[in-house]
């Protein structure tokens, strides 16, 4: 019994370590305090600053646009890459899989630096063109989409594709209407993973971004090196908003899977 209590206590302590900073910051973001410790009155001042300061709103929308754009490109590339690799001859498939593995195990610092060396130093592509930044984020994300789609292709029943061809579908049509629908879950989770990777990235953006552009990570890292207090506390509000968004997404997706499971149960028993 005592052992059981100890186990639960340990889990609670680890959770506290992970969440106390975020939760405390969330509480303080609704006050006019500028430091943790001295609670002052309730205020939504930080949220007003967050959503009305052009510098902050621009940085947030830029980060989101970059994440969606890079994740979109990465999803298309990674998906067709996985389909292609699966049906290629063994050598070609091994070649693609091996290269695909490099950005996955590599440190982001090295990936970012090497892309900067190739695109900016060797090829003289200006960082202001945003090409190095987008290319860097696509390189970061596409391999994970590839890895997330691949298991779905392996599980897929290939005879349906053959059947579609026999029934007169063009290979392209068979691909779009037979293969792709079967691997949608892998594509969706690949896209979601790509978005989170891009949103969380610091190093690749740091080495490839235009000087005037900031992602949330590069902005926050700079801001902690001596920003104005109003910006500092507005970032507390940003952290709270992101935390609540994550909670919301988790809740909604959990409810959806539960409803789906319930629906499937219902159709099975009927």
């Amino acid at each position: 019994m005592a052992w059981k209590v100890c186990k639960r206590l340990f889990l609670i302590l680890v959770l506290l370590f992970l969440y106390l900073p975020i939760l405390l910051l969330a509480v303080y973001s609704f006050t006019s305090s500028t430091n943790i410790g001295a609670i002052r009155g309730f205020s939504i001042h930080n949220y007003v600053t967050l959503f009305t300061t052009p510098e902050l709103t621009g940085m947030i929308s830029g980060t989101v646009l970059l994440a969606l754009g890079a994740a979109g490109i990465a999803t298309v590339l990674g998906t067709i890459g996985a389909i292609g690799a699966f049906y290629s001859r063994r050598n070609a498939s091994a070649f693609i899989t091996t290269l695909n593995q490099i950005p996955v195990i590599n440190a982001d610092v090295v990936t970012g630096f090497s892309i900067c060396v190739l695109l900016v130093v060797v090829l003289h592509i200006g960082k202001d063109s945003y090409i190095p930044l987008v290319a860097g984020h696509v390189t970061l994300c596409a391999p994970f989409v590839f890895l997330s789609v691949m298991p779905r292709i392996r599980q897929m029943d290939s005879s349906i594709y053959e059947a579609a061809l026999d029934l007169g579908a063009t290979p392209f049509r068979a691909l779009m209407e037979v293969v792709v629908p079967q691997i949608v879950p892998g594509i969706v989770s690949g896209f979601a993973l790509a978005v989170t990777l891009s949103l969380d990235d610091y190093f690749i953006a740091m080495y490839t971004k235009p000087a005037t552009f900031d992602t949330i990570s590069t902005y926050v890292v700079n801001a902690t090196k001596g920003a104005q207090t109003s910006i500092k506390t507005a970032l507390w509000a940003l952290s709270t908003v992101i935390f609540l968004l994550v909670v919301l997404v988790v809740l909604v997706s959990n409810l959806r899977t539960r409803r789906l499971a319930a629906a499937q149960d219902g159709s099975l028993t009927r």
Partner: peptide, 25 residues
Amino acid sequence: FSRKSLGIPYAVFLVIFVAAPLLFL
């Protein structure tokens, strides 16, 4: 068109953005 050829654009992408940067390193 065949499914195999879908691997080509991704292989090219990997060569340009993964292999080439490492060679220049």
